[in-house]
Design a protein around this nucleic acid. Structure first.
Length: 692
RNA sequence: GGCGUGGUAGCUCAGUUGGCUAGAGCGCAGCACUCAUAAUGCUGAGGUCGGGAGUUCGAGCCUCCCCCACGCUACCA
């Protein structure tokens, strides 16, 4: 691509059911903000879009959990999240919400356009339905026992204990979380996006790079290629739910657009709202080929932004496709994956409340450890070390050295430029090195390598420290005060350059430095072009950053340690329970296949004379009626058993008990309290159906 | 089980199409300096590049096998 005429930058829409943590920031928001601030400083036409994703079942669940309404939930978290962003200096041009009317309209228009074009397929399927509440149940509204780990509280989409992704029909004994009753299956109609039809196009666009103008990151390409290799399938883009954007068709009450056709359209509707707010035209940003469109996201969003959303945009026909999707990996915390539900994270709003004035420190540490090519690690020790050894010792200290010397020798007035110093070979070489590093800095940002850019910036500061040490103005002043003036003039100018260069990375510090100079922010991103006014008044020396004491770090570590301990205690307790009834020796499938299990129905039951534990059951196996003796008399009365569905081990050798021949065995589950429960095939399984 | 991404110095990470003695920052050791929040500057130690085999004049990089971490996905009869 030639130089783009304008830039449209998006960051993944945070889901408004919980607060923002630093992993999110390092993944999708900080890199975008750095990039955008850099572009603005270069004078580019750029719009930076984000907003809350406020629909979906998880939010309605959260509302139920907090005993409130979905609206209250999204208002609460939208407020927390958007404040956290602005407090951290993430400079969106608009932070919008998908609950806004303009978003609903935009999404519906999009759906209608694609629907009218015949892009979607309509399909009927069976979904669980709650008869009492008269509604279809979203996956997360169904709970049951996980077929993998036997966790009794697995959701219909995922078991949070073992992490397996499920579909509601996988659950054993599913229960509606609305009525706490078993749901029934009922037919429903949904619209599907036939991703399979886009397979070839996606293959050439992403894998072969047809029509792309930028190289994509390896992790992004790999993930996409993996999906394409598996083969894409049609995906439902509507859901039976009442919280979301309504499907804009007749006879579609109770149906909303699924996230695919909701959240990413939020980028578009937010752009529209921004245009309304500012009197601009939104369309060129989305529809003109000379726009560079970038989606900053975390790796969990790669499939969404690289496969699904492009299919939607392309289907529409008028929209451009992303130039790049510079997805980051994940940032771990002290060795473990960050997670809101497991309380293992650092929440942005809490951090900012606890450590006011440390916005730039957090930005610095997150940038230095940004998970650009692989998962990275945030530790509090590293946070402290980077603050104390880099921000304080290198950058803050350089600024302070220059300010203190200037105050001491020149009463905080800009000293004069001195030709002999300007032409000194050392200074010429110094300037050349700074120019080279500035170049590295720009290249870094432009190619989404923000850690490199940060490193280049710090190297510029290091050169400043070195220059001071090499010229030793504190000695030079005694023998050659004029030359000293020239040296400090260079230092001050470099400090002003640093204020400019660090603005995308450390905007708060940039502001404080500009204030010291009593100057507005430099209009352009550049180095060496500054010309301060000799004799102009400067501010008083100050510390840009302050040391962080061990004690502060230790308390953060202690807090995490106690969370880890309590989690381990829970895990240990669960392990003990499982260990109490250890699993039997492993068998082969052949061993299992010897068992002939059948579904059956109890026709009648009677006590056996002289036996207090045995019942004589007559069981219908469909193809025959059998007599089975079962030792359950202490748990069930005979009359309660008529019509009971059971599972029978049908090929067990016959055995006489108390004179009655038993032809099989009834399967029972024994609870921890010793109570017996029938095992039965649910639903329509009839007598004689085999079980395997 | 399949696919993807990683496994490089004590720690956090770079290493672009295979090419001099494998790099950076921090930490560590020594030296210099004192304007500075004991901060800065210089020098140095430290790596069989997850393990094994192969291709090549030459492999951190390419091929095969194995181990480990993370993610996605299938199957679960």
């Amino acid at each position: 691509m030639q130089e783009p005429k304008r830039y449209l930058i998006t960051s993944a829409l945070p889901y408004a059911n919980g607060p923002l943590h630093i992993g999110h920031v390092a993944g999708a928001y900080l890199p975008a903000d750095i990039y955008v601030r850099y572009l603005r400083k270069q004078g580019k036409d750029v719009v930076f879009i984000c907003g809350s994703d406020e629909h979906g079942a998880a939010i309605t669940i959260q509302a139920k959990k907090e005993n409130t309404t979905p609206k209250a939930i999204i208002d609460k978290y939208n407020a927390i999240i958007s404040k956290a962003f602005s407090d951290l200096g993430i400079s969106f041009d608009i932070y919008h919400r998908t609950s806004a009317p303009i978003h609903h309209e935009t999404s519906q228009e999009f759906f209608k356009t694609l629907h009218d074009k015949g892009v979607f397929e309509e399909r009927e399927s069976e979904q669980y339905y709650d008869e009492e509440f008269k509604q279809f149940l979203a996956d997360r509204y169904i709970k049951g026992t996980c077929p993998v780990c036997a966790n009794p509280n697995a959701y219909g989409d995922q078991c949070e204990k073992c992490g397996t992704s499920l579909s509601p029909t996988d659950l054993i004994e599913p229960v509606s979380t609305l009525s706490n009753k078993p749901p029934v299956k009922r037919k429903t109609t949904h619209w599907y996006l036939p991703l399979n039809k886009f397979q070839d196009w996606l293959q050439s666009w992403i894998v072969e790079g047809e029509g792309r103008t930028e190289e994509w990151k390896k992790n992004v390409l790999g993930q996409c290629a993996s999906w394409l290799k598996e083969g894409l399938h049609p995906r439902a883009i509507t859901r039976d739910l009442d919280w979301g954007v309504k499907v804009p068709l007749p006879n579609s009450e109770g149906k909303v657009l699924y996230v695919w056709l909701d959240a990413p359209i939020g980028y578009i509707s937010a752009t529209k709202q921004w245009a309304l707010n500012t009197g601009k035209d939104w369309e060129p940003y989305w529809k003109s080929a000379d726009t560079k469109l970038l989606h900053f996201i975390g790796k969990d969003n790669i499939v969404f932004h690289c496969l699904i959303f492009p299919c939607i945009l392309k289907s529409h026909g008028e929209y451009i496709l992303p130039t790049n999707v510079p997805a980051n990996e994940f940032m771990n915390l002290e060795g473990d994956k960050m997670s809101t539900s497991r309380n293992w994270n650092v929440q942005v709003h809490e951090f900012l409340e606890e450590f006011p004035g440390k916005e730039d420190v957090l930005r610095y540490v997150l940038c230095a450890n940004m998970p650009e090519t692989k998962d990275s690690e945030f530790t509090w020790k590293d946070y402290q070390a980077r603050n104390n050894n880099e921000l304080v010792a290198i950058f803050g200290n350089y600024a302070n050295r220059v300010m203190v010397l200037t105050e001491k020798y020149y009463g905080s007035k800009v000293p004069a430029q001195v030709d002999s110093v300007e032409q000194d070979a050392y200074v010429v070489a110094y300037r050349a090195q700074v120019a080279q590093l500035f170049n590295d800095y720009c290249t870094g940002i432009e190619s989404y390598r923000f850690r490199d850019a940060l490193m280049a910036f710090m190297d510029i500061v290091r050169l400043g420290n070195k220059l001071l040490t090499d010229f030793e103005p504190w000695k030079l002043y005694k023998t050659d005060p004029i030359r000293t003036e020239g040296v400090l003039r260079i230092c001050l100018e470099s400090l002003y350059d640093m204020a400019t260069l660090c603005e995308p990375l450390l905007p708060f510090s940039a502001g404080r430095l500009n204030a010291y100079f009593n100057l507005p922010a430099a209009p352009k991103m550049a180095v060496g072009g500054v010309n301060l006014t000799s004799g102009a008044g400067l501010g008083s020396p100050f510390y840009l950053f302050e040391k962080i004491e061990d004690q502060v770090i230790q308390s953060k570590l202690d807090a995490l340690e106690s969370i880890r301990r309590s989690r381990e205690a829970v895990t240990a307790a669960e392990t003990t329970i499982i260990a109490a009834n250890p699993i039997k020796e492993a068998i082969s499938y052949d061993d299992f296949s010897k068992l002939d299990l059948r579904s059956g129905v109890v026709l009648s039951a009677e006590r056996i004379a002289g036996a207090d534990k045995l019942l004589k059951l007559t069981v219908d196996l469909g193809f025959e009626v059998r007599t089975i003796v079962s030792g359950i008399a202490l748990h069930f009365s005979p009359e309660a058993l008529t019509g009971k569905k059971v599972v029978v081990l049908a090929n067990l050798l016959p055995r006489k008990m108390r004179g009655v021949e038993s032809n099989g065995m009834i399967l029972m589950a024994e609870g921890k309290d010793g109570a017996l429960h029938f095992v039965a095939a649910e639903g329509n399984a009839g007598p004689g159906d085999s079980i395997s």
